[in-house]
Design a protein around this nucleic acid. Sequence first.
DNA 1: CTAGATTGTCTAGCGGTGCTAAGATCCGGT
DNA 2: ACCGGATCTTAGCACCGCTAGACAATCTAG
Lengths: 185, 185
Amino acid sequence: MPSHTRRERALEERRELIVRTARELAEAEGWEAVTTRRLAEAVDYSQPVLYGHFKNMDAISTAVALEGFEELAAVLRTGRERDGLRGLAEAYLRYAEEHPAVYDAMFVRHTDLLFGQVETPEILRTTFGEIMAAVTPFAPDDPETLTEVFWSSLHGLATLANGSRLRPTHHQQRLNHLIAAIGHP
Amino acid sequence: MPSHTRRERALEERRELIVRTARELAEAEGWEAVTTRRLAEAVDYSQPVLYGHFKNMDAISTAVALEGFEELAAVLRTGRERDGLRGLAEAYLRYAEEHPAVYDAMFVRHTDLLFGQVETPEILRTTFGEIMAAVTPFAPDDPETLTEVFWSSLHGLATLANGSRLRPTHHQQRLNHLIAAIGHP
DNA sequence: CTAGATTGTCTAGCGGTGCTAAGATCCGGT
DNA sequence: ACCGGATCTTAGCACCGCTAGACAATCTAG
């Protein structure tokens, strides 16, 4: 029986190795560099081993995304506790800037991990709940709609900044504008 | 000599055929379906003909994006003249919703078409200028920063809505919130 | 009108991709 | 010692972006 759990632990470890390696490869060279061949070579197994753990390549980036949601929920909570709406916004934008590949996996790439669905994983609700907790004081009667707007604004700032489509210099001023706009109704 | 211009006109027509077909294919089945083989077959030429007009596949989606900027600048202007900031925002979000593949080519896919650079094509400045013209009344002393924020918010709403990450029902309410936030400083 | 050069287009191929069937190998239980 | 099942790899398919070289058509010069 203990061999059974040991086997399972070995499998789980290898699964984590795959996800970690995929994430490192994506952060280092972008998701287009994460191919089954390169990933298999990096973890020192053949390609079919990957398919023993994940049904396809998208499932691997989804696993990375789920890790990201855990981390994002945590940093949002810390930021919110430190400085409310502004602290949360800073934490969100910092996370997106520091982990662009993970952020892409969470919000830009594949489509099969959705908010607002019945099947939405708990951690996605938790993450959204963090934003809502920071926004609620400014729209107590309908926090959900303002949360969507605030989140969209953060998402827009994050993706356009990551894609070098905003001036790199005015980060703080943009944040000031956004906080002022949402915070003073 | 007239044969020269006729030849050039034929080339230009074929170039437009390629761009138009790529756009239709992308709108119908997404950009991942726009491959050199399928596109070549759709225009009834072999693949190398595509490379006579464009240096690679990215250049084709860039050509589609440039068409999109022309159209977007026009609808933004119309919307702004009709109803100021709100009219522009409605026009922006409607364009993104009705032409998701073109919108992706403009703002989500490739990276070699950037704002705020020295080499930025005039039409990109014009489009950004449209947004700035609508925003300036609300921040006369530094319109550019608020424009970036407002544009980011619109971009976030557009992409998250296109990716089914926002409730499909509260479109108008979200817009109301955003206009109220930016419009009343 | 013919011969040669130029232009235009296509066939065929390279190295890469995601993914999988089928064979090889290892390992525990009898 | 052997067998059966789990595990891993080799080898392959159909597709991808992209390009070299063969081929055909057209234009130019004599």
